[in-house]
């Protein structure tokens, strides 16, 4: 029972902070909301008994992505005291309608459908099993992703370092 209560707390936290990301009026607040939302999702992975994934989520999103975003915010800083422009475009109301519609459809389909359930009470996923699957069954994909990462790093460095020559 306690687990369910905790789950709902986490769910509310995630949805609340995710809403914070999209409606907050300060980019910095949005970034911090994003970080909390992502950490909450790491909590969700713990509920799903995939602790390894939760830690990966914390390491990559909390330690790297959120920091990158904050760093980018520092570099593209908003003028303090200057007149703030609205962070939302004029299309925001329509976007809201679309998003609410989408949410309604997704939630309805999730709740209405009877999902075939193979596992009722999942056990913790052993780490050794994950590494086997990751490196053996998905070995080629793993290498492709590695190459993708390398290319992304090189590309990011080239983009960021280029001097204003043109």
């Amino acid at each position: 029972m306690a687990v369910e209560v905790l789950w709902w707390l986490f769910a509310i936290l995630i949805v609340g902070t995710a809403l914070g990301v999209v409606v907050s009026r300060s980019v910095i607040h949005a970034a911090i909301f994003l970080l909390v939302a992502l950490a909450g999702i790491a909590g969700m992975y713990v509920f799903l008994t995939v602790e390894f994934l939760a830690l990966v989520q914390l390491l990559i999103y909390g330690g790297a992505v959120a920091v990158l975003v904050l760093l980018a915010l520092m570099l593209t800083r908003q003028a303090t005291g200057g007149e703030r422009i609205s962070l939302n475009g004029p299309q925001a109301p329509f976007a809201a309608i679309a998003a609410i519609g989408l949410a309604a459809i997704l939630v309805a389909s999730a709740v209405v459908t009877t999902w075939p359930r193979l596992v009722d009470d999942p056990d913790a996923v052993p780490l050794g099993r994950i590494s086997e699957v990751l490196f053996e069954d998905f070995g080629a994909t793993f290498i492709l992703v590695s190459i993708l990462l390398l290319v992304a790093v090189v590309g990011a460095i080239i983009l960021a370092r280029q001097e204003d020559a043109e």
Partner: peptide
């Protein structure tokens, strides 16, 4: 680089 441009409140 001139530091004079103010587009949308960004320095």
């Amino acid at each position: 680089r001139e530091g004079t441009l103010d587009v949308g409140g960004f320095e």
